[in-house]
């Protein structure tokens, strides 16, 4: 036959489980087991003169920890390298979270609780920073998606921007024939409105000085002092500006939640690189000054 005679064994369906619940908390169980085993080994060892990185267990935990750190960092590559074989990024993330958390135990036991103002403790501190920021990331990934979905409903980003643009066009049209001073106010909304702004603005959703809002206030003020005919025209523009305000609010909330979902990465990723550097120095110096 022209077709292959065997049914393909390709994986098609996928289980409906979050990354935290992946395969019935498989990696949580692995991580707990690793931690328990490490703690048990720590208390059963007879380290001379005292527990630390230099003991057999210390070396072992250090090697495991360093290996884990490198492997955990490779998630960034895995995420972007779309290869054709069997892999699940969800499984990687699940392992990344739980094994990453287990590093707290592994690395702490590796130190033997010896801390100081040196590059070794710096590496340990950076690692804790990476883990802490990652924990915030886990919280964000669990708590925020629902808000993201609720906020946008079925509106896409493109549609949000198109909505703002079409309101701009309507405002522009409605303001035809305005005297110079009111036209200048309208132009503030049309030309100076910043939809998103910088990262911090998005993160804190701080748009108190929004140009559209300023323009609307001034139009409303002008409306109060204008004659009946003029006030009607101003009123129309004000309605459109309020609608633009709503559309901006929707888009900005979307960017705000997205910024919250990304904010932790701005610590997590640079700290990871710093950790890798510190870790390299830690390992090289330990062996160089043995």
């Amino acid at each position: 036959m022209a077709r292959s005679a065997t049914v393909s064994q390709r994986r098609r369906s996928s289980t409906h489980e979050s990354f935290l619940r992946h395969k019935g908390f498989l990696f949580l169980k692995v991580a707990v087991f690793v931690c328990v085993a490490a703690v048990a080994a720590y208390f059963f060892q007879h380290a001379r003169p005292r527990p630390g990185g230099g003991t057999p267990l210390g070396y072992f935990l250090g090697t495991v920890g360093a290996g884990l750190i490198v492997w955990l960092a490779l998630l960034g590559v895995r995420k972007r390298a779309v290869s054709s074989g069997h892999y699940s990024l969800k499984a990687w993330v699940s392992a990344h979270v739980y094994l990453g958390l287990s590093l707290i135990v592994i690395a702490t036991l590796h130190t033997g609780f010896q801390f100081g103002w040196n590059v070794h403790t710096l590496a340990y501190g950076l690692m804790l920073l990476v883990i802490a920021s990652g924990a915030i990331g886990v919280w964000a990934y669990v708590a925020l998606p629902a808000r993201l979905s609720e906020n946008r409903g079925e509106t896409t980003r493109k549609q949000m921007l198109a909505q703002i643009q079409s309101l701009d066009e309507l405002i522009h049209e409605a303001a035809q024939g305005f005297p110079r001073d009111t036209a200048a106010i309208v132009r503030i909304s049309l030309e100076q409105t910043d939809i998103g702004g910088g990262f911090w603005r998005r993160l804190f959703e701080d748009y108190r000085d929004c140009a559209n809002l300023r323009a609307l206030r001034e139009i409303e003020a002008a409306q109060r002092t204008a004659g009946a005919h003029e006030a009607k025209a101003l009123g129309e523009v004000a309605v459109l500006m309020r609608r633009k305000g709503d559309a901006l609010g929707l888009a900005r909330r979307q960017m705000h939640i997205t910024a919250l979902l990304e904010a932790w990465l701005f610590v997590h990723v640079p700290a990871t690189f710093a950790l890798l550097a510190a870790l390299t120095v830690h390992i090289v110096s330990v062996f160089a000054y043995w």
Binding site: E17, S18, K79, L89, K90, V93, P145
Partner: peptide, 9 residues
């Protein structure tokens, strides 16, 4: 395969 959280099924 590329969904990090298991949202895509």
């Amino acid at each position: 395969r590329a969904c990090p959280t298991g949202a895509a099924i």
